[in-house]
Design a protein around this nucleic acid. Sequence first.
DNA 1: ATTACATTTAGATAGACATCTAAATGAAGG
DNA 2: CCTTCATTTAGATGTCTATCTAAATGTAAT
Lengths: 92, 92
Amino acid sequence: MGFQESLKAMSDKTRREILNLLKDGDMTAGDIAAHFSMTQATVSHHLSVLKGGGLVTDRRDGKYIFYELNTSVIEEIMAWLIELKGVDKNEK
Amino acid sequence: MGFQESLKAMSDKTRREILNLLKDGDMTAGDIAAHFSMTQATVSHHLSVLKGGGLVTDRRDGKYIFYELNTSVIEEIMAWLIELKGVDKNEK
DNA sequence: ATTACATTTAGATAGACATCTAAATGAAGG
DNA sequence: CCTTCATTTAGATGTCTATCTAAATGTAAT
């Protein structure tokens, strides 16, 4: 699980929408899938890509599997972007 | 040119390396290509994807074409990430 | 004009990916 | 245990993408 996988995971529209959903609190796989018009299997695939990129974690609670945003990876990406923008070259 | 294209552009390792190169100042297509072991044509393709995502701009100067980082798109992405991290749910 | 140099475009190919249907796993309740 | 519900896994398919070689474009210098 590295940068590559995290950014690949974020680069899909459906997956970004999943992240936006999760922003407001944990959700079950079923509830997440209900927000989309694609198959549950497809959404499950997207969830596993997000998990592979470290952007979400999952936990089982009885019959349900809850997904949760993992913000630490988001911070890593932000750190890279800040570094990329860098100190303005004209400032020195 | 939208979010989708910007993030897709960033989600490739080679292209991220190009962005990192450009961080330290503008470069010609040839100089950029020289940093990689792939064909100049392939690097040119990556540059056009980065351009499509608004992450770089290009300008011709005589024989050479210079590429330059465009930081405004980077800021847009950062804004989304900040929004995504959001106010900590436990804080309310 | 002709040659040389810098870069892109065209066309092809192999591998990756989003999506689907159908089958498998795993947990809870009768 | 057997059924039902929640979710994932397997296998297939069409589309997208990274890469290559070869050809085209654009610019400068002779």
